[in-house]
Design a protein around this nucleic acid. Structure first.
Length: 200
DNA sequence: ACCGGGATGTTCT
DNA sequence: GAACATCCCGGTG
């Protein structure tokens, strides 16, 4: 039977993810993250590479924390940051290349009531998913989601294409919150979207 | 609106 | 012991 989805769409195929993260990242803009009844359009992403990217968790090789980055493309890599936040990435490229796309912000589409329940501090819709840790909090994404397959419809989390193309001319900037590789412009966002996490 | 500091704990040096 | 792919709150203007 076909599971109920708040937004009609087709899960992205594994071949979509099996490319370098800097190629996958802008292509993920306007795709839709779905967890149960919750859905949000992805409006901001960042690409992280592997051994050649000092800002990447994979820079110093595989550890228990980043093991999912070294697994198959199309997996969700979830990590714990600053002692209290979760952040989610889509793993890219062939297994072993360890690159990923950080999901930084989304525009809420469905399940907003349950998102507000997960984020009591939110006062407006734009407070729900306008940052990588807010997004995970709104969706209830935590360590138990690490390593989940985004491609398999039977998994609790997926990314679907509802027919909305990425922006023809996405916004672009250096990545946020880094102390190294600060000149690498691997952040992309949907211009003008109020859910983007930082001023454009 | 903008800015500064504190929370909080895992990971790595 | 320091760094950290962040967020929230309370100050000020």
């Amino acid at each position: 039977m076909i599971p109920d989805r708040p937004v009609p769409g087709t899960p992205l195929a594994r071949s979509f993810y099996a490319r370098p993260s800097r190629v996958v990242a802008p292509a993920l803009l306007n795709k839709v993250l779905v967890v149960g009844v919750r859905a949000a359009r992805i409006v901001e992403v960042e690409a992280y590479a592997g051994a050649d990217d000092p800002a990447s968790h994979a820079y110093r090789g595989q550890t228990a924390r980043n093991a999912t980055m070294f697994g198959p493309p199309g997996s969700l890599y979830v990590y714990f940051a600053y002692g209290m936040h979760w952040c989610a990435n889509a793993v890219c490229s062939p297994a072993g290349s360890s690159s990923a796309v950080l999901l930084r912000a989304g525009a809420p589409l469905a399940g907003l009531d349950s998102m507000y329940a997960m984020r009591p501090v939110a006062r407006r819709d734009r407070d729900l998913c306008s940052g990588p840790a807010k997004l995970c909090q709104a969706f209830g994404i935590d360590r138990s989601f690490d390593g989940r397959d985004l491609v398999d419809e039977d998994q609790p989390v997926t990314i679907v294409d509802d027919g909305t193309p990425p922006p023809r001319r996405p916004g672009r900037s250096p990545r946020i919150g880094l102390s190294v590789a600060v000149d690498v412009r691997w952040r992309w966002f949907v211009p003008g979207d109020p859910n983007v996490s930082r001023p454009q």
